[in-house]
Computed example of a mutant assay.
Amino acid sequence: MFEIWIQEEQYYCKDHYVKINNKIKAYSLSANENEKSYIETNKQFLFEMLNTQKRFPLYITFIAYDDYSDIKETFEKAEIEYKVEILDETNTVWTDGVILKYNLPCFRVRANNSDSLKIILNTTYYLAAQNEFYAICYFNNLIFKTEEIDIRRLKNKKVKKNVSIPYFNINESATLFTIEHDGAGFYIFSNEEKYSSIERLICQLPKKTVITQINDNPIE
């Protein structure tokens, strides 16, 4: 059983920046749990939510760190289809006293059934909990475009950086899931009828889900 809070959102994602080419309904869903286990609880709630929809395949897109050999090994052992795309955006880290600069590796993974979805989430959800980009959709319609943005000022001069921005292409029937800050829930962006209102969204929730709050209104 999950106790959750549902919040209607604007059509843009606040925490994981993603550009969407149309206005659609947006919700935030968060499973209530104590501070020590909220990540695991929300990962399980996400799995149950996706599994309840009974729609496969699912396409999972996420950003990994420079060493992702363990992820590849797990996917290959489980015969999960994936590919790694190297983005234009770079990241710089300290490792063993040395500065390491690398281009962001982007995984595109296909979950054909609930078993593969569980493996993927168990293997990679920690990245979402560490606020790396993480998204799930029913069609492979999420792409990255490189844009130059101002990141800070240095001695009164703007410092620019090439950033890989995710774009979600809305078609006639499209739904996108992204993970909330620190893995504490997830967003749903959709133009599908079954998510067109909170009442219809509630009908899509896993069985035995208890709603404790909708927007600013606690449910007694």
Rank of each mutant, 00 (worst) to 15 (best):
I4P: 00
I6E: 11
Q7S: 12
Q7G: 11
E8V: 13
E9F: 15
C13S: 15
D15G: 15
V18H: 12
N21V: 14
N22L: 10
N22H: 10
K23D: 11
I24Y: 08
L29I: 04
A31Y: 00
A31S: 02
N32F: 14
E35D: 15
S37K: 15
Y38L: 01
I39H: 05
I39D: 08
I39M: 14
K43Q: 15
M49P: 03
L50E: 01
L50S: 00
Q53A: 15
Q53N: 15
R55D: 05
F56K: 05
L58S: 14
I60Q: 07
T61C: 10
I63K: 07
I63L: 04
D70W: 09
K72L: 05
K72I: 02
T74P: 02
K77I: 12
A78E: 06
I80D: 04
E81P: 04
E81M: 13
V84S: 03
E85L: 14
L87Y: 11
T90S: 08
T90K: 11
T92E: 03
D96M: 11
I99D: 13
K101V: 13
Y102S: 08
P105H: 03
C106F: 13
V109S: 04
R110G: 10
A111C: 10
N112A: 09
N113L: 06
D115H: 04
K118G: 10
I119F: 01
I120Y: 08
I120E: 06
I120L: 07
N122I: 03
T123S: 09
Y126W: 06
A128R: 00
A128L: 01
Q130K: 12
N131E: 06
F133W: 11
Y134C: 03
I136G: 08
C137D: 05
Y138G: 09
F144L: 02
K145S: 06
E147G: 01
E147S: 05
E148K: 09
E148D: 08
R152S: 01
K155R: 11
K155Q: 06
K155I: 01
N156D: 12
K161W: 00
S164K: 06
S164R: 11
E172S: 15
T175R: 12
T175M: 13
L176G: 08
E180W: 02
E180I: 00
E180N: 13
E180H: 03
H181T: 04
D182Y: 05
D182W: 04
G183W: 00
A184W: 09
G185R: 00
F189R: 08
K194N: 10
Y195T: 10
S196R: 06
S196E: 05
S196W: 06
E199R: 14
R200Q: 04
I202Y: 01
I202W: 04
Q204Y: 04
L205P: 07
P206S: 03
K207F: 05
K207P: 06
K208M: 12
I211W: 04
T212D: 12
T212F: 08
I214W: 13
D216Q: 03
N217I: 14
N217M: 11
N217P: 09
